[in-house]
Design a protein around this nucleic acid. Structure first.
Lengths: 135, 135
DNA sequence: GTGATAGTGGATATGTATATCCATTGGATC
DNA sequence: GATCCAATGGATATACATATCCACTATCAC
């Protein structure tokens, strides 16, 4: 019931950008220092986020990262998806490798489906604006 | 929103034992063959489950594995806990490494807490008897 | 255009989960 | 107690996520 390190880095970076918007782009190394994340690792995470369209990256002097849209319009799902990949796809408790056929589903299946639904809805209905990182 | 391979193996093994109880102990290699799990890997998983008290292992001729209690009395949490370890501990979205202080919690925190609560309740209220593996 | 700056990407380590191999131990049966 | 059988445990291999290092490219400022 946790996200991977990459996903958490992504969420924290997005949260920080959201709470420090003032028109200025934020440098990757500043972000890394503030969030205490290895700079070279964070840069890969940010590149992934840029490719998937939730933030923009500008090179050269005066460059840096900023949110691609207002934070309230970026769903957590968009941030999480590129990193959680397959893991996030809900499926059978007992056979996560293949699609779950409901026929013959055990009684635990329904309850587990409910948990997955709550998870999916959370990622769908929560936006980056709902996150806030203190420092 | 998935369990690790070890956890899934554990759940499937427990489910199989629950639906094939007839007083006979089940051999590890038979279990591995039926569930198509690498035998030597499964044996480690089963050893862990035995140590944590949800199944009993008997050596020698006529040996094998069986549930330590009726399936309806084994909560999924007991099966999952030894493998999910830290990962299962709910915490901050943004700082999973340290305990979450509620003061200053972001608005996403409450919603995420609800998802975690659903997850915890599922593992607490569902038993091995609620699982069933077809073949 | 020249130089400085900042993101990009390739190659490479490290750690952990997953998987395999094989020798050893403990228990059942005779 | 001799023997067989099945779980146990140590050592090792593989895969992937995480992390680091460094060279390259794109952009801005002058």
């Amino acid at each position: 019931m946790n996200f991977s390190a990459s996903t958490t880095h992504a969420l924290r970076a997005m949260a920080w950008l959201a709470s420090h918007e003032d028109g200025e782009a934020v440098l990757g190394r500043d972000l890394a220092r503030k969030l205490k994340i290895p700079p070279d690792y964070l840069s890969k995470v940010l590149a992934t986020l840029a490719r998937s369209g939730v933030l923009t990256a500008a090179r050269g002097a005066k460059g840096g990262y900023r949110l691609a849209r207002p934070a309230a319009r970026i769903r957590l799902w968009e941030v999480v998806a590129p990193f959680e990949g397959k893991r996030a796809r809900s499926s059978c408790l007992l056979r996560p490798d293949r699609p779950c056929r409901d026929s013959g589903a055990c009684s635990a299946h329904t309850a587990w489906g409910g948990v997955n639904e709550a998870y999916r809805k959370f990622l769908d209905n929560t936006t980056v604006a709902d996150l806030s990182e203190a420092s």
